[in-house]
Design a protein around this nucleic acid. Structure first.
Length: 267
DNA sequence: ATATGGCCCTGGTTGC
DNA sequence: TGCAACCAGGGCCATA
């Protein structure tokens, strides 16, 4: 669910509310697939530590702890939410972790569909599997796609190339760059790849400014929805007229994901 | 090595 | 109105 802009919004919101606070206690739900690290290890690693920062790496929320330098990784999956709430507020259904904080609030991880994952890393800082699309330079960006036969949309979704792009922003950036999603990544021209990089950066930054997209599940740390969905030009606009040329937006399945594009504007 | 398809889950929406 | 089928922003794993 949440892609780079949504995760960035969540991480920044949570950071503002809880950094410098101490974690007094940790509760976990015991649902096995939610926890990539053993639950006792997560609890032991977090309990008593002070939160240095909460930041985004790829689509992962990374909480760094002051003394140990260990990190708590929160992947939101499709429906994961991080809520900062007073203890008196009833726990929502599907609450899987609760951190009690010295400031008097709780940090809660809620995830109905349970595609989210919680883990800790004890060694080197977590850097994610791929490059960050907001900061990657032009030449490294072009190199990512060289000789790849896979459709460009599938390459954009591959987190080990770029970390943070998901279905919405893949479709939106390809539309803005005028590139069809099925084009082989390795056959895109240099000019097209430079356009794609620029489109990705513009779309992702714009979405961050608007607090991300909110189709149904995503809510930020305040419980406020993002507004970027009002800016979608192709995603979820099947059969609606293209905002540039009026051609009906087409929907196909690619790499197992719904994919939206304008057959006139994208080549 | 690399790419596609099935699968994990719940809940909101759609259509009969 | 009620219910069942379908679909969803992600990513892991087995398979080809």
């Amino acid at each position: 669910m949440p892609e780079l802009p949504e995760v960035e919004t969540v991480a920044n919101g949570v950071h503002e509310r809880i950094h410098h606070q101490r974690i007094l206690s940790v509760w976990t739900s015991g649902k096995p697939q939610t926890f990539k690290s053993p639950e006792p290890l997560i609890a032991d690693t977090l309990t008593g530590q002070t939160i240095a920062s909460v930041r985004r790496v790829g689509k992962t929320v990374v909480m760094t702890l002051t003394a140990s330098g260990s990190q708590f990784l929160i992947h939101l999956g499709m429906t994961g939410r991080l809520l900062v709430s007073a203890p008196s507020v009833p726990h929502p259904p599907h609450t899987h972790a609760i951190l009690t904080l010295s400031g008097g609030n709780e940090l809660r991880f809620v995830d109905a569909r349970r595609f989210g994952r919680l883990s800790v890393v004890l060694g080197a800082p977590y850097t994610g599997p791929g490059a960050d699309p907001l900061t990657i330079a032009p030449e490294p960006f072009i190199d990512l796609f060289r000789n790849r036969k896979t459709p460009i949309k599938a390459a954009l979704l591959n987190q080990s190339l770029l970390s943070g792009v998901g279905n919405i922003y893949a479709d939106e950036s390809l539309f803005r760059a005028g590139i069809r999603p099925r084009r082989h990544a390795g056959r895109l021209t240099r000019a097209e790849l430079l356009r794609l990089r620029e489109s990705l950066m513009v779309v992702l930054r714009h979405a961050i400014q608007l607090g991300g997209s909110s189709v149904s599940d995503y809510v930020d740390a305040d419980g406020v929805r993002g507004f970027f969905q009002l800016e979608h030009r192709v995603y979820m606009r099947t059969n609606q007229p293209c905002l540039v040329c009026q051609t009906p937006i087409r929907k196909i399945t690619l790499a197992g994901r719904s994919t939206h594009f304008c057959p006139t504007c994208q080549h």
